[in-house]
């Protein structure tokens, strides 16, 4: 495991260890939130934003605990997390496409059908994707954006660059 405070990049092993990666069974059942909030900071926006009480903290300064059985992958927390540290992944559908829902706050604004370059946690180009859904969060104005990507990339893709025709 690399020290994420040296790199600014968290690896999958660390996420697994922190309990942020659901079981394969859960992953294949439907969309689910992946929290990449790995450092204890004073914030509990996710706790009070979740409509299903799936996120909890004992203290405001704990890292969040996600109950994957309660989480429906609705994505509300994606648009609310001040750290832009929540993503929803969905590998439940037939075929090779998976979905990643991520917060997006850069221009140009994404719209449905747009082609995008998908980026990993280090900004490396991991391939291309397609915007299947996007809306602006009512409170924060972030574009909560779902992109279709090859299934094997859903745990890698964490940002997009929108290409406008």
């Amino acid at each position: 495991m690399t020290d994420f405070k040296e790199t600014g990049v968290v690896d999958l092993k660390t996420l697994v260890k922190m309990g942020y990666v659901p079981s394969d069974v859960r992953l294949h059942r439907g969309p689910v939130a992946i929290y990449e909030c790995v450092e204890e900071i004073p914030c509990d926006v996710c706790v009070f934003s979740c409509p299903f009480n799936a996120v909890s903290k004992n203290k405001m300064t704990d890292i969040p605990k996600v109950d994957f059985e309660r989480c429906t992958g609705c994505g509300v927390c994606v648009g609310r997390c001040p750290g832009l540290a929540v993503f929803v992944v969905d590998v439940s559908r037939e075929g090779d496409e998976g979905y990643v829902t991520l917060p997006h706050e850069l221009l140009p604004p994404p719209s449905q059908g747009d082609a995008v370059v998908v980026l990993d946690r280090e900004g490396g180009e991991a391939g291309t994707g397609r915007v299947v859904k996007t809306y602006r969060d009512r409170l924060t104005g972030s574009w909560v954006t779902t992109v279709a990507v090859p299934k094997n990339l859903v745990m890698n893709v964490r940002a997009i660059r929108v290409i406008k025709r």
């Binding site: 994420f4 450092e39 750290g83 832009l84």
Partner: peptide, 15 residues
């Protein structure tokens, strides 16, 4: 990195 991880991750993912 001196600041919070989430702020670092936000810029790292754009390279």
């Amino acid at each position: 990195i001196g600041g919070w991880f989430v702020h670092a991750a936000k810029i790292r993912r754009y390279g």
